[in-house]
Computed example of a mutant assay.
Amino acid sequence: MPRWRELPEELDPQVREFTGQLRRIVERSGMSVVAVADRTGYSKSSWERYLNGRLLPPQRAVEALAEATGAGAHHLITLWELAERAWSRSENRHDVTMEAISVAQARAAIEEFAPEQGKRNGHPSEKAVKGAEAAEADRAAAPPGPERPRMPTAAATAPPTAPYPGAAPSAPGVPAAPDSSEEGRGGRRRMALFAGAAVGSLLLVAGAVFLVGTGDGDDGKPVAAPKTAPATTAPSLPRGVKCAGKGCTGKDPEAMGCGGAKAITSANLTVGTAYVEVRYSEICGAAWARITRAAPGDQIRVSAPGGGGGASVSRSGEVNTGGEAYTRMVSVKTIAQATACATLTSGARGCTDRTANG
């Protein structure tokens, strides 16, 4: 009877229940993981991930297991659907958490360079708001009198007038006597508030000019804006598929959701007693090599042409135990671009597009 690893503590309860059911079905069947892989068409390493809660199997794999063991497919698929929804919720929570962390880091970086006074992130600072509220309270509490301008205007160039009723007008060039009234103090507070806001705005503009530059070169001519790559939209991938094209090169096909029912065998041959395949996923735009009925030490390799006429790209794998192995993926544009080659410990060699016996 197989000895299972402890399931991850963070595993969702519905995923945990479904994985436990898979284990019980395998135990009752008396089959090893290798035998389950042979009967279902999914690799031994994939079933190890499924039965240890590291990866949720595709529906086709669950149906193949039910058929191979005689288990009730309807009940098992129902459990799989519940587990699949729980697995998706867990992935969404992870994505939202990572997005929130990124937003928090971006805000922290912006606030590090924001001015101490004036506006911050497009809104008045707390200090400015409190100052405005205090000035408004002073104005409301002041005795009735003529309205004084809140900001200097063109009227400042007009002939001097008395600052308040009964006061003598000040001579040109001579500052008026300090106003000790509540209205005067309120006016000074308002002027200080607006002056602080103006200084903050100037600092913000100066910082933007310093970071972006004036737009003129050393010869006084406008500098052309830097060329940026056109915005591209990431391709929409089916649920569970995590890469496409060049993004799949060097990655595990099962972990990226490219294997199982999403892949086909595009080429194959027999080398000695080993069975060699090229596995191709159109959704992922990638291929890999798989070898079964092999011995420990047998090697497998997948190759594909490099982009733009460059050197070919290849990935290799080696059989350890269980009689099978597969490589990581290489990006391909067509089903015929990938080639799988095997080198056995017996000395036999062969490739899907040619064979050679040594």
Rank of each mutant, 00 (worst) to 15 (best):
R5Q: 13
R16P: 01
I25A: 03
R28Q: 07
V36T: 08
W47G: 00
Y50A: 00
T69F: 08
A71F: 10
G72H: 14
G72A: 09
H75K: 10
L76V: 03
T78F: 07
E81R: 12
R89E: 15
T97F: 13
M98S: 14
E99S: 09
A100T: 04
I101L: 10
G118W: 03
N121Y: 08
G122Y: 02
A128V: 08
V129C: 14
A132R: 15
E136N: 13
A142G: 01
G145L: 01
E147D: 13
M151K: 08
P152T: 06
P152F: 03
A155S: 09
A156M: 06
P159F: 00
P163R: 01
G166E: 00
P172Y: 01
G187K: 00
G187R: 00
G200F: 00
G200S: 03
L202Q: 13
A208T: 13
V209P: 15
G217V: 03
P222K: 04
P230I: 02
P235F: 02
L237K: 04
P238H: 06
P238R: 11
V241Y: 11
K246E: 11
Y275H: 09
R279C: 05
E282D: 12
A286I: 00
A289G: 08
T292Q: 01
A294R: 07
A294G: 03
D298V: 04
R315K: 15
S316L: 10
E324I: 02
K333I: 07
A338F: 11
A340N: 05
A342E: 03
A342D: 01
S346Q: 02
T355Y: 15
T355N: 13
